[in-house]
């Protein structure tokens, strides 16, 4: 009974974790290149969720088709905000960029609220279910998890096998040196910021496939805090490290429930959250720059 529950929760945790990872890669990418913590991260996830819902309910298309839309919308927003705001703040104190991204998040949330209202929405994409005995998984969740893993792989290949990816990596390592070598550093910044936002908006699509309810202008807040923690687990500046950070976080959140539920007189669900944050602190105590090495 206990073992079955634990196994079931760990499987669910792995699926959830890969989506958490996907939802953090954009954050890590932006931090890695621009040294900017995107406090408005959750708002971009929310944009992805609304994109998916619109594609499904208004256009009547399979949510998978929301991915290209989300990527394009996200990158467009990324370039826009980079050239209008962020590029002026590269040399400014850390606080300035924190506040700027926070304000951008609010602008997005309030605009969506005015357009769609503040109702919690959702949709129902029926894909059938896979019964594993210890737990049940709808195929929509598996598609979302598989898609997330694929994106992480593609990102890895882009970083290591393409010219633009290599250029971005060299900027991360030494922006002055890269400039001397003739790399257009501002373009590399713009591209990474846009790609980071694009990834984040796309992760909203996967997240909505996983949980197709609760879509609301303010839904991103909780994910922002989780993404911060996962990003640190993964080394903060490493996008695919973030993916593994997500897996670990998902496993911990779901797996610890079964164990904590055996303690009398406590609320195990709230304690799983406590446990995740304690783990974060312990990891930081041992390795002050996260589990995976930053590049």
């Amino acid at each position: 009974m206990f073992a079955e529950q634990l196994a079931g929760n760990l499987i669910q945790g792995l699926v959830l974790g890969s989506i958490y990872g996907m939802a953090t890669m954009g954050l890590s990418m932006i931090f890695g290149v621009l040294q900017v913590v995107n406090v408005g991260h959750g708002a971009f996830i929310m944009i992805g969720a609304f994109t998916t819902m619109t594609v499904f309910t208004k256009l009547g298309l399979n949510p998978i088709f929301a991915i290209p839309f989300a990527l394009v919308i996200g990158m467009a927003l990324g370039f826009l905000f980079y050239y209008v705001v962020m590029q002026r703040l590269i040399k400014a104190p850390e606080l300035a960029s924190l506040l700027a991204t926070f304000s951008i998040g609010i602008i997005l949330e309030e605009t969506v609220k005015l357009t769609f209202g503040s109702e919690f929405r959702g949709f129902n994409w029926e894909t059938g279910k896979l019964d594993l005995g210890v737990t049940v998984l709808p195929y929509s969740k598996l598609i979302a998890a598989g898609g997330s893993a694929l994106v992480a792989l593609l990102l890895y290949l882009w970083y290591h096998k393409t010219r633009s990816g290599t250029a971005v990596r060299s900027v991360i390592e030494d922006s002055e040196g890269a400039r001397v070598c003739g790399i257009n550093v501002n373009w590399a910044y713009a591209l990474s910021f846009a790609l980071g936002i694009g990834l984040t908006v796309t992760s909203g699509v996967f997240l909505t496939m996983f949980i197709p309810v609760g879509i609301n202008p303010y839904m991103g807040g909780g994910y922002t805090v989780k993404a911060f923690v996962i990003a640190v687990l993964g080394g903060l500046a490493s996008p695919y490290g973030a993916f593994f950070g997500g897996l670990i976080f998902g496993l911990m959140e779901n797996g610890s429930y079964t164990i904590l539920a055996t303690i009398k007189g406590v609320e195990p669900f709230a304690l799983t959250r406590f446990f995740s944050f304690v783990t974060l602190l312990v990891i930081l105590l041992i390795r002050p720059t996260g589990l995976f090495k930053s590049q």
Binding site: V232, G265, L271, R273, F277, V278, L280
Partner: peptide, 18 residues
Amino acid sequence: IATIGVNEGFRYFIEGAR
């Protein structure tokens, strides 16, 4: 981020451990 962790962790501790 570590300080965010402390803040959130503390809230969940109050709720979880009652």
